[in-house]
């Protein structure tokens, strides 16, 4: 591997909920290093702690223990100003396109918020429209058709693509995609994935996929991390982890996914 810079890394990251008897260890002393321009998948079943980890990386949930380093510096999000600065560099796409929008606002608001975040609040309206049109065309949407519409007037695929347009406007260094295609039709999945890859190619964005779908992880990522009960049980390049798994949990996970080219052995359950 050539000299790659570490974009986001963490040591001993832990999240504990509750006290006493209801104490749950959601994320258990996790270490990781994600490089610039890398596509990473964090794979785990429900309850593995992957969503909690994502929220911690985003700064939406506080960490109980451990540190996160962004571009080599320890992350400090103690004030709103510092948080804003951090969020200029890290954004997210969520699983359910329908709930990602405020149903009372027109979809323009979503894009305008991004322009404001980049410091464009004072731009003349025409410039803002130009930026929004460009963002929409990146995701094969026509801004003039969508402007002044409410979220429920769009389809699921359109809404998710608009979320990507939002990312295009913000150009963050890191994007966390939490199951971005699980609620999209299979036929539209490739479109979403292609667009995300394009973003990575154009601006060297690090993409972190959070998913339970091993097939997706294998197809799209450079590195895969397998998470179980809050810990990373295995990590490595996609080929290594999926085709030559070492840990029993990983092997079981891969065996339980239905296959079409190989024989799917049902006797293991």
């Amino acid at each position: 591997m050539a000299e790659r810079k570490v974009c986001l890394s963490g040591t001993g990251l832990t999240k504990i909920y509750g006290f006493g008897r209801t104490r749950t260890l959601a994320v258990d002393h996790v270490d990781f290093s994600f490089y610039e321009g890398e596509v990473v998948s964090i794979v785990g079943e429900s309850g593995s702690g992957k969503t909690t980890l994502a929220k911690m990386l985003l700064g939406l949930t506080s960490t109980t223990e451990g540190d996160i380093y962004f571009q080599g510096q320890k992350r400090d999000i103690s004030t709103q100003k510092k948080r804003l600065e951090y969020w200029r560099n890290i954004q997210a796409i969520f699983q359910d396109p329908f709930s990602s929008y405020n149903i009372f606002n027109k979809i323009d608001a979503v894009l305008l918020d991004c322009i404001n975040m980049r410091g464009g609040r004072q731009f003349p309206y025409s410039k803002k429209v130009e930026m929004m049109t460009q963002a929409c065309s990146f995701v094969n949407l026509k801004f003039e058709e969508l402007t002044n519409k409410y979220p429920f007037e769009l389809s699921g695929g359109q809404m998710q693509r608009l979320m990507i347009a939002r990312v295009f406007l913000l150009m963050p260094k890191i994007l966390i995609a939490d199951e971005p295609t699980s609620m999209i039709d299979a036929c539209s999945r490739a479109t979403i994935l292609d667009m995300l890859m394009q973003l990575r190619d154009e601006i060297g964005m690090t993409i972190i996929f959070i998913t339970h779908d091993l097939g997706l992880a294998y197809y799209v990522s450079d590195s895969v991390y397998i998470m179980e009960h809050g810990k990373f049980v295995e990590s490595g390049s996609a080929d290594e982890v999926i085709l030559r798994p070492k840990q029993a949990y990983t092997k079981r996970l891969i065996n339980d996914v239905p296959k079409i080219y190989e024989e799917w052995d049902l006797s293991t359950v």
Binding site: G215, L216, Y218, Y219, K259
Partner: peptide
């Protein structure tokens, strides 16, 4: 558009 974690995919 089928994605499976199999070799060659």
């Amino acid at each position: 558009s089928i994605i499976v974690p199999e070799e060659g995919l």
